[in-house]
């Protein structure tokens, strides 16, 4: 909108009952559908086993909340070390990918070297290669490299989906920085390196945050590589640990499972709540080309 005059639009034409039927009620149903599993997860995590296995009581509430499941989770299982692994692997692979992506995106978008257009396209295609067709050959490679069952196995493989994503996203951000700024800096006496560190990077900070947050969540949520490349209990990540170690035969420790799911979701959820705008910008930016 070019002018700054305020506008409210044509909402005055809509009656309140109509708004309820066409807007509020569908929206509430959506919210219920989307949020109920979280409620259920949280509720179950605090429910004592007796209530969990009762078919008579009202299942939608908890009468005597307990921390028993959390205690079991943190004391009887390797949950703390899964958590620690996930944090280390996510942080390291995110920073590694971000660093490589900044250079790659700047080179493709701004240096415009010979073939940069094709490389940009290749990066996009790399972004579309799903882990589920790579995990088998990667597993054999990991084995040959002797890093099977170590954190390195994941730190080195997560960038295969993080770098294409971050590069693609950052290319969009770099594109939005006017060329003249770089030319002006060139005349002001800056080298290419100084242009990158003093002009482009400070201006791309929102993009870096978006890419970083998104990459961190992607690493945190990764499953198939972590399931395939790691086998010792103390080396597992949270998603793999919870699903493989908390299920013993047919005995499901529902309370602990839910507690594990809840605690494992919290870091990304908290991070997300602080950076919602960046996260959404990252997600939509990557889709919008």
């Amino acid at each position: 909108m070019a002018d700054s005059e305020q506008r409210e639009g044509m909402h005055y034409l809509e009656s309140l009952p109509r708004r309820w039927v066409t807007l509020y009620i569908p929206l509430l149903l959506f919210l219920f559908f989307l949020l109920f599993p979280f409620y259920w997860m949280g509720l179950t995590a605090f429910k004592p086993n007796a209530e969990l296995l009762s078919t008579e009581d009202n299942p939608f509430w908890v009468v005597a909340p307990t921390l028993e499941h959390f205690k079991k989770l943190f004391i009887d299982t390797s949950y703390p070390s899964w958590m620690w692994n996930t944090i280390i692997i996510s942080v390291v692979s995110t920073f590694l990918s971000l660093a490589a992506s900044v250079f790659a995106a700047y080179a493709i978008e701004r240096l415009r070297f010979k073939g940069s257009h094709q490389i940009g396209l290749a990066i996009f295609l790399a972004y579309l290669v799903p882990p589920s067709i790579l995990f088998i050959p990667l597993a054999t490679m990991i084995f040959h490299l002797g890093i099977f069952d170590t954190r390195w196995a994941l730190i080195l493989t997560y960038p295969t989906f993080l770098i294409p994503f971050c590069t693609w996203l950052l290319m969009g951000y770099f594109r939005s920085i006017p060329f003249e700024l770089e030319e002006c800096a060139l005349i002001d006496g800056a080298t290419r390196w100084q242009i990158l560190t003093r002009i482009v990077l400070p201006l791309a900070v929102p993009g870096l945050i978006s890419a970083g947050i998104f990459a961190f969540t992607l690493s945190w949520n990764e499953f198939i590589y972590a399931l395939t490349f790691v086998s010792a209990s103390e080396n597992k990540t949270v998603p793999v640990g919870v699903i493989t170690e908390l299920v013993e035969g047919d005995v499901y420790h529902w309370g602990s499972l839910m507690a594990g799911a809840l605690v494992g979701s919290l870091p990304v959820a908290i991070m997300y709540s602080f950076f919602v705008e960046y996260y959404v910008a990252g997600m939509t930016g990557a889709v919008k080309e």
Binding site: L34, M41, W220, P239, V242, I243, G264, V268, Y272, Y279
Partner: peptide, 14 residues
């Protein structure tokens, strides 16, 4: 957006 950001495996458990 919450369902999308929470680890799929963990929400699948729910």
């Amino acid at each position: 957006l919450l369902p999308f950001i929470v680890p799929t495996v963990l929400s699948a458990i729910a």
